[in-house]
Design a protein around this nucleic acid. Structure first.
Length: 473
DNA sequence: GTAACTTTAAT
DNA sequence: TTAAAGTTA
């Protein structure tokens, strides 16, 4: 074949790009095309920061493509129309893209396939293992993580030769029109995630290189929002600025080179997080109704309170629970939140405020740079207990205990809730327990400088237990 | 071969 | 409590 289109969506990379690789293997000339879809930009599940991060990634990708003699073609409009135009202008004989799982993506891709006269060829690459590959003995999909992960791990490890190398050269079609890449919105300066594949690769290698690599202390460090114990790769994985398979290869290699058993277990726990990611893509793939409501449909009947004022306080980080507020303010400021904090604030919204988990899911999608339909939905359903986990206990996080355990010195709280900076360690996670004299000494009056708790945890706990009990049996 | 029953473990 | 996998009838 002479000409093919590489349709770029959430695979903003050259290394281990299966769509690009397949196109290059079959066509003499491959044209990289990105379509800026106005429908997506204005969705209630999209926010400015993620768009800004994506645009930054596109600028970086355009530079990488240019460095190899090619040119990124940008079009603005509906994908079916834009791609049909490019196909006609270039006489492309096929369009290659990475298969995606969200209902939005699958609907869009079906529409594109129907509109094009050239075939739309979808490759793997969004997940480590091909979608739908990890199944039970009888071919049915797994619905519980642990057996899924066991089967996943029993498959052959990812090895160097699985990785598709980046092309050394690309070609250009000089007369083919391209819209300029927007320069707005931009990321806030404080956001610690410079977009692009080179940054993603640097982060991955810093995370796994050497005997003292952070991956070898990950299992303890990862739960501390006051420290930098995670890989910080989620936004890059979200937009495919790094291939998840390359991340898995790195994890396997770290397992192999682990200096001791503890280090090995730590690397294992990071690999497990990558498997969780594959798992939630598989869930969305096999059970697309999770995007609408509970995985277990009986939980759609829960009588939520859905108090708008409490929801607004949660969003703004004004709940009166310091650990919750620190996390929610970190989210607004950075477009990112530490995962331990995500679990705590999700539990608080659903269990303490008795607000529909889908409200939280939507807020996260609007705020998060790494917001991903599959992973975010899976996380929220896990927190709400409406999802895939069958546990004999009902999970309610205590917002004070979470803070004391995972932010023991209050450094995270003080970083994001400055009005509590002078509160003594003893009260940092429950400042309402300060006597009036303590409050004066700390220069922080509860109810004036910082809110009193908007709910009583013990009461809220009893209320949510009853609400969940009511939909059971 | 299939269904009923038992065991295991859930971050 | 429940899913998955193994065991027995």
């Amino acid at each position: 074949m002479r000409t093919a289109i590489w349709w770029i969506r959430r695979d903003l990379r050259l290394t281990d790009n299966q769509a690009l690789g397949a196109a290059l293997a079959r066509a003499e000339r491959v044209i990289p095309v990105f379509v800026l879809d106005p429908g997506l930009l204005h969705s209630h599940y999209v926010g400015e920061k993620r768009v800004a991060f994506m645009l930054g990634g596109l600028h970086s990708l355009a530079a990488e493509i240019a460095a190899r003699g090619g040119r990124l073609i940008v079009r603005i409009g509906f994908p079916a129309q834009a791609l049909a135009d490019v196909c006609a202008e270039t006489r492309a004989e096929a369009v290659y893209a990475e298969r995606d799982v969200s209902p939005y993506a699958t609907t869009r891709d079906a529409a594109v396939a129907a509109a094009l006269s050239a075939p739309l060829v979808l490759t793997e690459g969004v997940t480590i293992r091909p979608l739908g590959q990890v199944r039970k003995e009888d071919g049915a999909p797994y619905t519980v993580y642990t057996p899924y992960s066991r089967r996943w791990r029993s498959l052959p490890p990812i090895v160097r030769s699985d990785i598709v190398p980046a092309p050394r050269e690309l070609c250009d079609e000089p007369r083919l029109p391209s819209a300029p890449l927007p320069t707005h919105p931009t990321l806030p300066k404080v956001t610690p995630f410079p977009p692009g594949e080179p940054e993603a690769k640097a982060r991955l290698s810093a995370f796994i290189k050497g005997e003292k690599a952070p991956i070898y202390t990950y299992s303890e460090q990862r739960n501390r929002p006051d420290m930098e114990g995670t890989s910080g790769l989620s936004p890059y994985l979200r937009f495919g600025m790094i291939s998840p398979r390359l991340a898995a290869l790195a994890a396997y290699s770290a397992l192999e080179h682990a200096p001791n058993a503890a280090a090995r277990a730590s690397a294992e726990s990071w690999l497990n997080e990558l498997i969780w990611r594959d798992f939630y893509y598989a869930i969305l793939h096999h059970f697309p109704h999770v995007r609408q409501g509970a995985f277990r449909r009986e939980f759609d009947a829960i009588a939520w309170e859905n108090d708008e004022a409490l929801y607004a306080a949660w969003c703004a980080g004004q709940t009166g629970y310091p650990f919750i507020d620190a996390a929610m303010r970190q989210l607004i400021a950075l477009g990112w939140m530490h995962n331990r904090a995500r679990m705590a604030v999700a539990s608080f919204l659903v269990k303490d405020l008795l607000i529909d988990w889908r409200w939280g899911e939507r807020w996260f999608m609007q705020m998060l740079i790494d917001g991903d339909p599959a992973a975010n939905n899976g996380g929220w359903q896990w927190s709400a207990g409406t999802g895939t986990d069958a546990a004999p206990y009902f999970r309610i996080f205590n917002p004070v205990a979470q803070g004391q355990k995972f932010d023991p010195n209050g450094a995270y709280v003080r970083r994001w809730v400055p009005e509590l900076r002078t509160v003594p360690d003893k009260f940092i996670h429950e400042p309402w327990r300060m006597e009036r004299s303590d409050q004066i000494r700390a220069g922080c009056m509860i109810g004036r400088d910082y809110p009193a708790p908007i709910v009583d945890h013990a009461q809220a706990r009893a209320r949510v237990l009853a609400a969940y009990q009511a939909v059971k049996s």
